[in-house]
C-alpha cells in the first residue's frame, strides 16, 4: 500500500539542515525509511546544503592540518557497524529500542494501551504506543506539534485513515481523537516537539543534552 500522508517540506528541510531535536529527527528518519517520496525530498535538501557549504566563506585551515589528516587516514576505524534486521520497526527506531518489537519495554498506561519512551534528548519526546484494535488513543497534552507515524495496524482520525508509513502531524490547537482500526492492534511512534507533560509518575529523564 502506498503512503498517503507525508511529512511537510519545512520539516524535511530542517532534517537535512540538521537543526531538529533528536526525537523529531528520529520520526523523520523512520518515515523516510518507509517513504521514497520523502527520501527524495531529503536528499534534495541535502543538495541545497552542499551548495550552501560549497559557497560559504572559506576559513583557512591551520598549516599542519593536511599533514595531520594524511597521517591518520589509515588508522583503524573504531566505529562499530550498526546491525539492523528487517522487522516491524524501521532501522532507526530499532537503534533506540535495541532490537525489533520483541525488545520493546512496554509500560501499561490504561485501557490496554502501552507506551515506551525512547532515550532521546529532552527538547522533544519520542515514544512508542501500542493501542489495542478499536481503542481510542490515550489523552495526553503537548504544547508543540505532534508527529504520529504508524508502524503496524492503522488508525482513523476524523475521515482519514493512517496505515503503516503514514504520518499525522497534529498542531497543538487541534483537538483530535485517533482511534485504532478494528482489524489489528496499532503500533505508532509518537513524537512531540516539546517536552511531554508527564502525569502521575516520575520519568527517568537522562540529561544527555549539553547546551552550548
Amino acid at each position: 500500500m502506498t503512503i498517503q500522508h507525508h511529512l511537510d517540506d519545512n520539516t524535511l528541510m530542517a532534517y537535512a539542515a540538521g537543526t531538529l531535536p533528536e526525537a523529531v529527527n528520529l520520526v523523520v528518519a523512520a518515515h523516510v525509511s518507509l517513504c521514497d517520496e520523502c527520501r527524495a525530498s531529503v536528499e534534495s535538501y541535502d543538495a541545497v546544503g552542499g551548495i550552501l557549504m560549497d559557497q560559504s566563506q572559506h576559513v583557512a585551515m591551520s598549516g599542519e592540518s593536511l599533514a595531520q589528516v594524511l597521517a591518520r587516514l589509515d588508522l583503524p576505524v573504531t566505529d562499530k557497524p550498526v546491525v539492523r534486521k528487517p522487522g516491524a520497526l524501521p532501522g532507526p527506531v530499532q537503534d533506540y529500542v535495541g532490537g525489533d518489537l520483541d525488545s520493546v519495554k512496554w509500560k501499561p498506561i490504561g485501557m490496554g494501551v502501552k507506551q515506551a519512551i525512547l532515550p532521546t534528548s529532552s527538547e522533544a519526546t519520542a515514544r512508542l504506543l501500542f493501542i489495542p484494535a478499536g481503542v481510542a488513543m490515550p489523552d495526553h497534552s503537548h504544547s508543540g506539534p505532534e508527529f504520529t507515524l504508524v508502524l503496524q495496524g492503522a488508525f482513523f482520525d476524523a475521515d482519514d485513515r493512517f496505515a503503516r508509513g503514514d504520518i499525522e502531524i497534529a498542531n497543538d490547537d487541534v483537538t483530535h481523537t485517533p482511534i485504532a482500526d478494528i482489524g489489528e492492534d496499532c503500533i505508532c511512534l509518537a513524537v512531540t516537539d516539546a517536552p511531554l507533560e508527564f502525569k502521575g509518575w516520575v520519568p527517568r529523564i537522562v540529561q544527555k543534552f549539553v547546551d552550548i
Partner: peptide
C-alpha cells in the same frame, strides 16, 4: 552534498552531543 551530510552529522555530534538518526 556528500561532504555536507558528513559535516552536518559531525556538527550534531560535537555541538549537541547527539547522534543523528539515519534512515
Amino acid at each position: 552534498t556528500w561532504i555536507f551530510t558528513i559535516a552536518r552529522n559531525r556538527r550534531i555530534d560535537m555541538l549537541r552531543k547527539q547522534r543523528r538518526p539515519e534512515p
